[in-house]
Design a binder for these strands. Structure first.
Length: 643
DNA sequence: GCCGTTTTCGGCCCGACTGTTTTCAGTCG
């Protein structure tokens, strides 16, 4: 049983309890436990084996630990079995429809016998829904609409990479409305999650009607879901839901915090506010007496204009959005111990780049030039090894021939140190896909899993451990092998792999390819705890990837709480090279290139994205969207439902 | 069902929008 599967059972219990009119706080306990389990770095099923271990996790008590153990062992638990007898599991998907929550689904089920999407569509078409108490014609029409849309394109989360240019365009368009002072994207986008369920825009200034008109009338918008004075919601042509809120300047910081989330982070903050006799909501942090009828009197705004102001009033340091997941960031902020997260300007190198010598699009010299233009002090060229036949991967002889090619590019592109590397396949038995002599000639050896990813846990773990034991190995590339929405991570015992990698001095990669973003934030966090060091790479197959993909690697690293010190390619070459060569490795020295400029990385070019999180996204990179604001093409959805 | 400048109970985060109602429940974030 994976964590996601266990979380799903808890989510379903929460929904069924709500249908059953259960205690709302009990419902919430199941929901929160589901979130906690989903975000665990280790399998809950393993933790459940030692009594009391899960109870150390906030949100999981004795009872839920027992239920997790049941689910891990049998796939279910008594509460779930009993509730399922009353409410068929097929009802769960109905609660995913916009406007249908547990209460309405229950009414549909008990009064009309609706059990499935088909039943629902039939009832709506037959005009039966509108007569139910609390429903009406509008609800019926919206339900039918939603069901038909769902049949056409299931609700899904979108890669942050796909949402990036859309966010940029919408931000710009609304920013052009007269009087608008600020437009920011909040939500999971600002927390830089790898996938996002929707976009949350916050706007300050401007005439409400003009802002809402610019928003709901934008060429990307396919459907207006709601339109009010301070809030509107739309669905774009690509299926993405976007919410916009207009907030007063005095509340902008509080609103940014509120809508950036995460939900659990906000709950922690509100509790902190209450402990100090204050109230925190999207309008600000206030003190004062509450009076009847929802109206408050004698309230005094303590803070709200900026996020810094609100955090300070709660006696906390400002917390970078990437960390706002209610792990330990609030405690760290209280103690002044938040990490200084790695930034784009910290990076001195990209250590995973392909060329047209294997499956890349651009030449060796172009790739090196592009790395130099980004201001990098050094880089590694890492084409594939022969096991990946379709990529024209290198065999031993090709590695030998490559030595002269690397020497040539070092002469042709001065000012950047070029490491002669290779991305060597880890064969099914854990052997490396290259001979000893060839390995010894390389400056930089990445080992990666590209095939037989479905091996059982013990087999693939032993395979990876064998591979990283090899003294030539520096780095494990995209360690889990996952492709978001397309392929699961290998069933590795990451804890063992990370512990051994830390002992051996083998680094783990955070790969910035948008559908990999691998290691995940959770695994990177676990790896850091075990003492592993990292690289943040693009795995570029073209010069364009170098500037684009690094963003997503950085997002993941920042969400994991990594600092410059954790990241090898955030070190100047001398420090990096010292790590590269020892102590157990036999790597030969690489002469650094003559550097005519300071060793600190040059400023990113102006068209690069801002490294600091509070800034709005940069101009859209997609030429298609920049050229004409037509409706965006449907982005490839990824699994996971909305959240 | 969890949690506790806590200990076996009492409290648990908050507001906007919608539609159906005529003051509010349900849903959503």
């Amino acid at each position: 049983m994976t964590n996601a599967e266990i979380a799903r059972v808890f989510d379903h219990i929460a929904i069924m309890l709500e249908m059953d009119g259960g205690n709302p706080f009990r419902v919430r306990a199941y929901r929160e436990a589901a979130r906690v389990i989903e975000h665990l770095a280790e399998p809950a099923a393993s933790l459940a084996q030692s009594e009391g271990r899960l109870q150390q996790i906030k949100g999981i008590g004795k009872d839920l630990e027992g239920k997790i153990r049941d689910i891990a062992a049998t796939g279910t638990t008594s509460t779930y079995t009993e509730l399922s007898a009353k409410y068929p599991p097929s009802l769960m998907e109905l609660t995913g429809i916009q406007g249908l929550g547990p209460k309405r689904v229950k009414a549909l089920f008990t009064q009309l016998g609706v059990r499935s999407l088909d039943d629902l569509a039939q009832a709506a078409r037959g005009g039966k829904i509108k007569d139910l108490p609390g429903f009406g014609e509008t609800v019926e029409r919206k339900v039918l609409d939603a069901v038909e849309k769902l049949a056409a394109a299931p609700v899904a989360r979108m890669l942050i990479h796909a949402a990036w240019p859309v966010a940029g365009e919408l931000t710009q368009a609304i920013g052009r409305v007269p009087g608008v002072e600020q437009v920011e994207v909040a939500g999971s986008f600002r927390r830089r999650r790898e996938t996002i369920g929707d976009l949350d825009l916050l706007v300050c200034g401007g005439e409400a009607s003009a802002v809402m008109a610019a928003f709901t009338g934008h060429a990307y918008v396919a459907e207006v879901l709601a339109r009010g004075e301070t809030k509107s919601s739309v669905r774009l042509g690509n299926g993405l839901q976007v919410d916009l809120r207009l907030v007063p300047a005095a509340s902008f910081g509080a609103a940014m915090m509120y809508f950036t989330g995460s939900k659990s982070h906000n709950i922690e903050l509100r509790k902190l506010a209450l402990e100090r006799g204050m109230t925190l909501n999207e309008y600000g942090l206030t003190t004062g007496e509450r009076v009847v009828a929802g109206r408050t009197q004698g309230e005094r705004l303590v803070a709200g204009r900026t996020e810094e102001e609100v955090y300070r009033a709660l006696e906390l340091d400002w917390i970078p959005p990437e960390l706002r997941e209610a792990h330990d960031e609030i405690e760290l902020a209280r103690q002044g111990g938040l990490p200084r997260l790695v930034e784009e300007s910290d990076l001195h190198a990209d250590l995973h780049m392909h060329t047209d010598r294997s499956d890349g699009r651009d030449s060796l010299v172009d790739m090196v030039r592009a790395a130099r233009e980004r201001g990098y002090e050094y880089c590694a060229i890492t084409d594939h090894s022969k096991a990946l036949g379709m990529t024209r991967g290198f065999d031993d002889a090709r590695v030998e021939a490559s030595i002269a090619e690397i020497e040539a590019v070092r002469r042709d592109v001065p000012g950047i140190t070029v490491l002669h590397g290779l991305e060597v396949d880890i064969l099914a038995d854990g052997q490396l896909d290259l001979g000893e002599q060839a390995l010894a000639k390389l400056d930089w050896v990445i080992v990666s899993l590209h095939s037989s990813l479905a091996q059982p846990r013990d087999v693939i773990t032993a395979r990876v451990l064998r591979a990283i034991e090899h003294p030539a190995v520096h780095l494990m590339g995209h360690p889990s092998g996952r492709k978001i929405g397309a392929r699961n991570a290998a069933d590795l015992d990451f804890e063992r792999v990370f512990e051994r990698a830390a002992e051996l001095g083998v680094a783990m990669e955070i790969n910035g390819q948008p559908d990999r973003m691998d290691l995940s934030d959770r695994n990177a966090r676990l790896a850091k705890e075990r003492g592993v060091r990292f690289t943040i790479d693009t795995d570029s197959h073209s010069t364009a990837n170098l500037g684009d993909y690094i963003r997503y690697g950085l997002f993941q690293a920042r969400r994991a709480g990594l600092t410059r010190e954790d990241v090898l390619n955030a070190q100047p070459f001398a420090a990096f090279d010292a790590w590269r060569r020892g102590p157990r490795r036999r790597s030969t020295p690489v002469a650094p290139a003559t550097v005519t400029k300071p060793t600190r990385r040059a400023k990113p070019k102006p068209d690069n994205p801002p490294a600091k999180p509070p800034k709005p996204p940069p101009k859209p990179k997609s030429k298609a969207i920049q050229a004409k604001p037509s409706k965006p093409r449907p982005a490839k959805p990824v699994k996971g439902g909305r959240r």
